[in-house]
């Protein structure tokens, strides 16, 4: 079981002005749990998500983000594991290393990459993830040797390059996951998010999570821009992540709507860069009825 532990996280924008956005976020997400993170615009929800994934636009000024892993999480690693292999401070890692350890960020506004087909992209991403994962747990000496041994296969040759997951195997995997999400086969041949509708992009984010099988998935407003049919497809996909892969989900949303389909175990409310209130699913319904002012009053009166 994996645990994502956010401790007293303070962060600011990484530019000259350095506007403070997070003022001490504490949050813990375990495998198999679904958390909803709610809050008004500008409260720091998306920033929290981006910092977990390692976005370079933010500077962490205090606190830490720790990923705890256990033996089940590392069953695929062939190396002898030390104590430190089970506990990682994400802040010291590159975004792709975090991905290799099982962190996934579903983007609110996914990038459009022209000329790169979904199939090529996803297979390369999966193989890169698997490769990086082995490297992270290798002894440093071995690591150095490997680098000298030289040339890494380029991702540019498309489907013929090597990698742990071969073309045929990958296509089968992709087909299964796409069926699960009720996605048209044509998607596989389209360029990554290029010209996708808002809903298609969100569906694609969930598809990517299904293929990369993260331990913890942070989904930033995965429900915005979805019509009701697609909302159901996407919700099924998210539930499947949790039920079949045991992924822990941190879902950022403004609306109760998706929570009817993806029922959260925990609901957190963020205000001014901190989590000010946590509760069970009923908290989201209360919010729906009373709005954030109710939380604001409660928080600042008791404070």
């Amino acid at each position: 079981m994996a645990t994502l532990e956010i401790k007293n996280l303070h962060a600011e924008v990484a530019d000259e002005d350095g506007e403070t956005i997070l003022r001490g976020v504490d949050l813990e997400v375990n495998s198999g749990e679904i958390h909803a993170l709610m809050g008004p615009n500008g409260s720091g929800k998306s920033t929290t998500a981006k910092i977990i994934a390692g976005h370079p636009a933010y500077r962490v000024t205090d606190g830490d983000i720790i990923l705890h892993l256990d033996e089940d999480d590392l069953a695929d690693i062939d190396e002898d594991l030390d104590e430190e292999d089970y506990r990682w401070s994400l802040l010291e890692l590159e975004p792709n290393e975090r991905a290799a350890l099982g962190i996934f960020l579903g983007f609110q506004y996914p990038a459009e990459i022209e000329g790169v087909t979904m199939t090529n992209f996803l297979r390369q991403a999966l193989n890169a993830k698997l490769g990086e994962r082995q490297e992270l747990f290798e002894d440093e000496d071995e690591d150095a040797e490997e680098e000298e041994a030289g040339y890494e296969t380029s991702p540019m040759e498309g489907p013929v390059d090597d990698g742990e997951v071969g073309v045929a195997e990958f296509q089968q995997l992709l087909k299964e996951k796409m069926e699960l999400l009720d996605m048209d086969e044509k998607f596989a041949r389209r360029y990554l998010n290029a010209g996708f509708s808002g809903g298609e992009k969100k569906q694609n984010e969930v598809l990517q999570a299904a293929i990369l099988e993260p331990s913890i998935a942070v989904l930033d407003e995965i429900d915005s821009g979805l019509d009701i049919d697609r909302l159901q497809d996407v919700s099924e996909g998210i539930n499947a992540l949790r039920d079949e892969q045991g992924t822990g989900i941190l879902q950022i949303t403004h609306y109760q709507r998706i929570l009817d389909y993806v029922e959260p175990d925990h609901v957190h409310i963020m205000l001014d860069g901190r989590i000010v209130k946590s509760g069970d699913a009923s908290l989201a319904s209360q919010l729906e009825d009373k709005g954030y002012d109710w939380v604001r009053e409660e928080v600042y009166e008791t404070a």
């Binding site: 991403a125 991702p155 540019m156």
Partner: peptide, 26 residues
């Protein structure tokens, strides 16, 4: 943002840039 998106999926910085260039000349 494009580079970060690809990195967050597991590609390292170089591979992310190469992927963007290969798509550009596709």
């Amino acid at each position: 943002e494009d580079i970060f998106y690809l990195q967050s999926r597991g590609l390292d910085d170089d591979d992310a840039k190469q992927m963007i260039v290969s798509g550009f000349i596709e």
